[in-house]
Amino acid sequence: RLHIEVEGTELMKKLVEEAKRRNLNVRAKVENGKWIIEID
């Protein structure tokens, strides 16, 4: 499991799109103003 903290929506969208393209499980949520992304 990969755990990433990202500031900025554009970067988050790119990460999520790339993960979906590779058929990975992606969860994204906002915590303290940062995107928290978990990829399995």
Rank of each mutant, 00 (worst) to 15 (best):
A19R: 01
M12F: 07
E38P: 00
M12P: 01
R27K: 08
K20M: 14
A19F: 15
E18M: 14
K29N: 06
E38Y: 12
H3M: 13
R22D: 01
V6S: 03
K14R: 14
I36R: 03
R27N: 06
L2S: 05
V30G: 06
E17W: 12
L15V: 11
D40I: 14
I36V: 10
T9Y: 15
T9C: 15
H3S: 12
T9I: 14
I4M: 08
K20E: 07
V6A: 06
I37S: 00
E10V: 07
K13F: 12
A28T: 12
V30Y: 15
V30W: 15
R22L: 13
K13M: 14
K29Q: 06
A19D: 00
G8S: 15
G33D: 05
E31Q: 11
R1Q: 10
E38S: 09
N23H: 12
L15F: 09
M12N: 01
I4L: 10
K14M: 12
I39F: 06
E7L: 14
K13S: 07
R1C: 15
E17Y: 12
K34T: 06
G8E: 12
W35N: 01
E17G: 07
K13G: 04
D40N: 09
R22A: 07
R21G: 04
L11T: 09
L15Y: 08
K13W: 13
T9E: 14
I39H: 01
L11V: 09
K29Y: 15
A19T: 02
R1E: 07
N32A: 05
E31G: 03
G33H: 03
K20S: 05
L15Q: 01
G33A: 02
I37Q: 00
I37P: 00
K13D: 04
A28Y: 13
V6T: 06
I36P: 00
I4N: 03
K29S: 11
L11K: 08
K29L: 07
N23E: 04
E18L: 15
R1S: 12
E38L: 08
I36S: 02
K34V: 11
R1L: 13
I37G: 00
L11N: 10
V16I: 11
R27M: 06
L24A: 02
L15S: 01
E5H: 09
K29G: 05
T9F: 15
V26S: 01
R21W: 05
V16E: 03
E7S: 12
E38R: 05
E31M: 12
L11Y: 10
V16M: 10
V26R: 02
K29I: 11
I36T: 04
K14N: 05
K20Q: 08
V6L: 06
I4A: 04
I39V: 06
L24K: 02
T9N: 10
E10P: 05
E5F: 11
K13E: 11
R21S: 07
V26N: 00
I4H: 04
E5G: 05
M12A: 10
I39W: 06
E17A: 14
K14D: 04
R21P: 00
E7W: 15
A28L: 14
E31C: 15
I36M: 04
L15W: 08
E38Q: 09
E18T: 06
D40L: 14
I36W: 03
A19I: 08
V30H: 15
V16H: 03
L15H: 02
E17I: 10
V16T: 03
M12Q: 02
K34F: 09
N23W: 09
G8A: 12
L11G: 05
A19E: 01
K14F: 12
K20G: 04
W35M: 04
E38T: 12
I4E: 03
N23Q: 07
N23K: 12
N23V: 03
E17H: 09
I39E: 02
G33S: 03
K13Y: 10
N25R: 14
N32Q: 05
K34A: 05
T9V: 13
V6Y: 06
E10N: 08
W35T: 02
R21A: 09
E31H: 11
N25A: 10
W35G: 00
K34I: 13
K13T: 09
D40T: 13
K20V: 10
E18V: 09
